[in-house]
Computed example of a mutant assay.
Amino acid sequence: MTEPRLASNVLVGALLRRVDSQGGFGAVLAKGDPMSGAVTVILAEKGRKLRILERLLHPDGRYEWEDVLPQAAENEEEVEKFLARRRKFDPDMWVLELDIASAERFAAEMKLIG
């Protein structure tokens, strides 16, 4: 059974507020479809990109955050190429950059909310 889907713009707003409330900074790099656009997050700590996560739908109907660019997040050129390919394939995709202290803890919390 598929879970009800949270509108993408609501999820984006919640992530930005959460980062702000923890003293971090969040920016929308690309605005997607407000209802059903995929959401990709560049997670950084003190300006250093650590991970790129995307909220993906699994066959069983659950949504989960998954790492989509392992080991290459710090390589700016690789990040740009990856995002360009993804946006070409999915122009309705949201791209956020979230810079927050304890980025790994924040990523773990994101994975809990799905």
Rank of each mutant, 00 (worst) to 15 (best):
Pro91Met: 12
Ile42Asp: 01
Gly32Cys: 09
Arg51Met: 10
Gln71Trp: 14
Glu104Ile: 11
Lys31Cys: 15
Ser102Ala: 11
Thr40Arg: 10
Asp33Thr: 05
His58Arg: 15
Asp92Thr: 13
Leu16Trp: 03
Arg51Ser: 06
Glu76Trp: 08
Arg17Glu: 00
Pro91Val: 12
Leu43His: 06
Gly37His: 06
Tyr63Ala: 07
Gly61Leu: 07
Glu3Met: 10
Glu76His: 11
Ile42Arg: 02
Glu3His: 09
Glu64Gly: 14
Asp20Arg: 02
Asp92Pro: 08
Trp65Leu: 03
Lys46Met: 15
Arg86Ala: 04
Arg62Asp: 15
Pro91Cys: 12
Glu76Asn: 11
Pro59Tyr: 10
Leu16Gly: 04
Gly32Glu: 08
Arg17Thr: 00
Gly37Glu: 05
Ala27Met: 00
Lys49Leu: 10
Ser8Trp: 08
Leu96Gly: 01
Glu76Phe: 09
Pro91Ala: 12
Leu11Asn: 02
Leu56Cys: 14
Arg85Val: 13
Pro4Leu: 04
Leu83Asp: 01
Arg55Trp: 03
Asn9Ile: 13
Leu57Phe: 07
Pro4Trp: 01
Val39Lys: 00
Ser8Phe: 09
Leu96Thr: 00
Val12Ala: 11
Ala72Tyr: 05
Gly24Val: 07
Leu98Gln: 04
Glu74Pro: 03
Glu76Gln: 12
Val68Ile: 14
Leu53Glu: 00
Leu6Asn: 12
Val28His: 02
Trp65His: 01
Lys49Val: 12
Lys31Asp: 15
Glu3Ala: 10
Leu43Ser: 06
Asn9Arg: 12
Arg17Ala: 00
Gln71Met: 14
Asp92Ile: 08
Arg48His: 03
Gly13Ser: 11
Gly23Ala: 04
Ile100Met: 07
Arg18Ile: 08
Leu50Asp: 08
Pro70Glu: 07
Val28Trp: 03
Phe25Glu: 15
Leu98Ala: 06
Leu6Ser: 11
Pro59Gly: 14
Glu3Val: 10
Ser36Met: 07
Arg5Met: 12
Ser21Trp: 04
Ala73Trp: 06
Asp33Leu: 05
